[in-house]
Structure formats: C-alpha cells, structure tokens
Design a binder for these strands. Structure first.
Lengths: 292, 292
DNA sequence: AATCTGTCTATTGTGGATAAAAGACAAAAC
DNA sequence: GTTTTGTCTTTTATCCACAATAGACAGATT
C-alpha cells in the first residue's frame, strides 16, 4: 500500500450525514468546500454513493435515492488518519504502560505494533519531539524522557509566562474584536455546564482547551500559540488518564474560569492578573498531584 | 544509495589530525570515545588508514607510518551531514533568493535541487517547522510564512521573556556551579576580541551564541533552552546575510555583553535586569533594521 | 581480572516506487 | 459570462529495501 485512503473514508462518512438531510447534493466544488477535500475526492465519494444506490448521479443531477444505513458507513477505525493512530498508541504506551524515563524507543518495534511502516513512525517521533518528552540520539535510538515532575514544572512555568502575557494583551483588544463575542459564548457554555455539572463534567476538557486557546491567541504571537499545542496534548491525555475526583476538580475549574472571564470582561489588568494566577496555580497543583 | 557515510568520512578526517600528533593510536573503544563514533566506524577508519599506508595495523598495534597529507582527507563537502546540506540550501533559498511570504514549497523540487531523496527533505521540513517560518497544509504543500517583520517581533518578544527570566535565575546559581567558571572564560574571550576587534569581529557570532546559550541554560527549563535553537538559527543566518556595519555592530554588542556579564557577576537582580534589557533592546533593533 | 578484538545482529538513515489526494485546464452546461 | 464537469498532471503520504552505523557477546590478549 502507498497511502491510506482515510481522507476519502472520513469525508464519505460525513457526506452520508449530509445526504440524510437533503434530497439532492450540490455541485462538486461546493461539496468539496463543505467537506474540506478536493474535487478528486468528492468524485470518488459520489462514485461510491452511486455504486451503493444511495444516489443517482448524472452530471449535475445528484438525487438522493434512499437514507444511508449504518452499514453504509466506514467503521471509525478506518477513518482515523495514520498520524492519529500512531499518537494514540504511543501515548498509551508511555502514559499507561510502565514507561520509565530513560527507556529506549525503537522505531521498528513501534511500527510493527501499530502495523505501519517505519517512515510514518519516524515522522511522528520527529514531530512529537517538540513536546520535550523524547529526545533523539543521532544514528541511534530515541530516549524517553518521561512524564515526570520536572517535565510538569517546566511546562507550567512557561505556560504561566505565556498565559499571563496573553491575558494582559486580551484586555487591550478593540471592542469589536471577535474574541469578545467568542468569550461571551464560552461563558454561556460554562454556566450551562455548571448548572448540570453532575452529568456534564466530562465535557469540561474540551471547553478548557477552547477557552485557554482563545486567550493564548490574543497574544498574536505564533510561538505562544504554537506552544499551546504542548499544553493541550498533555492536559488532554492527562484528563483521560487521571479520573480521580474529576467531577469536583472540573466544577472548581469551571468556577475559576468564570472568575477569570469576568475579570477579562472588566478590562481591569489587575483583576485579570489575579484571576489568571489563581486559576493557573490550581491547574498546576492538579497536574502535579497526578504525578507519582 | 542508502545512507551517506558522512559519519565515517568526518570521523576519518578528525582521526587524521589525531594521527598527525601521535606515533601510535589507542585501542578501538578509546578511539571511538574520542571521535564520538561506534567501534564499527572506528574499524572502518583503521581499515582505510591501513589501506592508505598511513598506519600499520595488527590487532592492538597501530603504528603510524607517515604524516597524513592533504590528499588523504575527504573533501569537506562530503563530510557534512545531509541534514546540514539541506538546511543550508533551504536557508539560502528563503533568505537570499526572492522568497515572498505565501510562496509554496515543493518537496520534490527541493529534493532534486539538493540531489537527495524526498524523505530527507520531508523530515527536514517537519523538524524545521518548529521555527515558525513555514507551515504545512495537510495532504498538500508547505507554505512559506517568510522572514518578515512580524516574525522578528514575535521571536524577540518570546526571547526577551525567556532571557530575562533565565538571567534572573542565573544570579541564584550556587557559588560552585560550573556556569560561573564558564562565564569567566566567556568574559575573557570578550576582552580579547574587543582588544583586536578590527580583525576578529567576525568571530563574534559564535561567541554570542555561546554566551546567550549559557544564560538560557541556567533556566533549567527544557522549553526555554530548546527555544534558543530558534533564536540561534535566525541570528546565525542573519549574521551571514547582513554584513552591513558588522564591525561597529559587533563592537557595540561586545561592550553590552561585558556590562551584562558584570551585572551577572554582581549578583544584583536589578542591575542584571537593566543590563539584559539594554542588550536585548539593541539586539532587537539590529534584527529589525535588516528586514525591509 | 580487566580490557581488547573478531564477529555477528539490530537499528537507523536514505533513496525509490506507488496509490491517494490535490489541483490545473479546457470543453460543456446553465 | 459564470459555474460545472471531464480529463489530465502534479504532489504528497506511505511502504519497502539496503547500506551505514551502533551495539552485543564471546574468545583472545595483556
């Protein structure tokens, strides 16, 4: 095999839900636009839809013949890109499995475990190395540096510098900057979630990322924004991994966020700094507690 | 070809200079240690030395037969690793050649220009992307974001945060930390260079990197230290590229460094902050001046 | 007893091949 | 005249093969 056709499969699945809601499909360029793929892929999707008697396709006419059934969809395992699969497998191995710092990482072994070629694994490791968890010995193996206490401290140190600076910048944004509207929406979601926190606390992780990313983006600094990837990935897997007291922890974070949001809306730099520091402080503690 | 044997060639060249100074060579492991290569490579080097009648090699006896001549060395073009060659070509293209922001980067084209396979170019681009000068469009090309004014401003903003923090940390290092000794040596080199600045100002670039890296390292934060790579590469190529007023600029920077070093040695946080800010300010101006 | 060498194996670095996906261009349709 | 489609070309993503390099182990040497 050369390339996995996950782009096609994923877009095909998304096209099916589109197809369920309409009686005809739009033009190829338009479809490509809404699915985020090229016309080549759109045509492959249409061809398959026709083959499955889902649509009748004659040039500009694409009439829907029947509702898609569950069996029409590609299984989700096949729609994830290779990079996502590699990341998941790798993170599971280093976070869940006994992964002592200093352990060697073997490209070939990883590739075999995932069922892929070495090139993809290699490229993943190169990309991943910027997260500071692994390190390359040239002409030799990779070394796992590990998700250690030091790592968490170094990460949060930089995070705090960046977020304080971004938050300070946020209050200087002009009145008509779209960030204020987005902040208002995020605030509303916070209130909804907090009102039904017992059932919805698991959705917090995603909201957390959305909020902090918005703050970081107001720095208008690519290095600060890019660094948020590191934070996001660490917290993402950390939330999946460490579920102790999740409800309580998330409820507290929601309230801290609301304080922080109110401070931003007040445009008062002092209030912002205080609310931001308080939240970062408790986020740091939470992270540190989960490390042995 | 599969792998370029640049490790062998480079180590061989370095072995020749070693050979010029001794009448016999040490054991294989010891040689490997001092050349920084494995025994496999050491044996390949010894085999070649024997073939060229440079040494007589019989198990533990490795007697030098003659001085190496210039023709024995591999030409320097062959000793650079592929990654270095790719980096140089690429930087020349984007700094020197007309490289408008938004330009597309083509892996295959680059590979052909350098005379290498696409895999190596691809891996280089992935590694290089962390410098924030290029960006990937998945399943499509890379986009050059360009060495613009914005780039320089964003870079220096983070640099200033990191360096101020590192410098503040520096003064808290214990008396016996090796950094103090290294600082003293760096200071001496500064004085020497300044005394003969007309002839030696071109050596400043390297010294600059050595000094600032020492400061950044005292942060004990991998993200801060890693970020110095970005600064180093930008300034490295910037120095090569923009030679206008180099003598005067470097002389001024040398003096600022000496102030900064004196401040560090005083252990007075206020003095350090002031000297550091002054120097960073002028470094920023220098960088910005070179951008159209 | 420690170190070195001969030999063998394992792993990385790199080029090349190929399917998937993107994208260009002209003719066709509205 | 604009948008759409049919067709073709270009480029990326991925696998695989093989030489360079690292590294392990046992027997040889001091």
């Amino acid at each position: 095999m050369a390339k996995q056709n996950t782009v096609f499969k994923d877009a095909f699945n998304r096209c099916l839900t589109l197809l369920a809601e309409n009686s005809a499909l739009p033009s190829e360029p338009e479809l490509g636009q809404s699915l985020g793929v090229s016309r080549t892929t759109v045509r492959a999707i249409l061809a398959r839809c026709e083959e499955l008697d889902l649509i009748n396709w004659d040039k500009r006419r694409k009439t829907v013949l029947r509702r898609p059934e569950p069996s029409d969809y590609f299984p989700t395992e096949e729609t994830d890109s290779l990079a996502e699969r590699i990341e998941r497998t790798f993170m599971r191995r280093i976070l869940a499995g006994g992964a002592e710092p200093g352990m060697q990482i073997n490209e070939l072994e990883l590739a075999r475990e995932i069922g892929t070629g070495t090139t993809s694994v290699r490229e993943f490791l190169i990309r991943f190395s910027r997260f500071g968890l692994i390190e390359k010995r040239p002409n030799s193996h990779w070394v796992l540096k590990g998700f250690t206490r030091d790592f968490a401290l170094e990460l949060t140190e930089v995070r705090e510098m960046f977020e304080l600076r971004s938050a300070a910048r946020f209050v200087t944004l002009p009145e008509d900057d779209p960030a204020w509207e987005e902040l208002k929406q995020i605030e509303a979601v916070h209130r909804d979630m907090l009102a039904d926190v017992d059932n919805r606390y698991t959705e917090f992780s995603e909201l957390d990322e959305r909020f902090h990313l918005l703050v970081h983006k107001s720095s208008s600094n690519r290095f600060i924004v890019d660094f948020y990837d590191v934070i996001a990935i660490v917290f993402h897997y950390h939330y999946q991994w460490n579920k102790a007291n999740a409800r309580q922890r998330n409820a507290r974070a929601l309230e801290e966020h609301l304080d922080y949001i109110a401070a931003l809306q007040s445009r008062d730099p002092n209030q912002v700094e205080q609310a931001c520091r308080r939240h970062l402080q408790s986020a740091r503690e939470t992270l540190l507690q989960s490390i042995p």
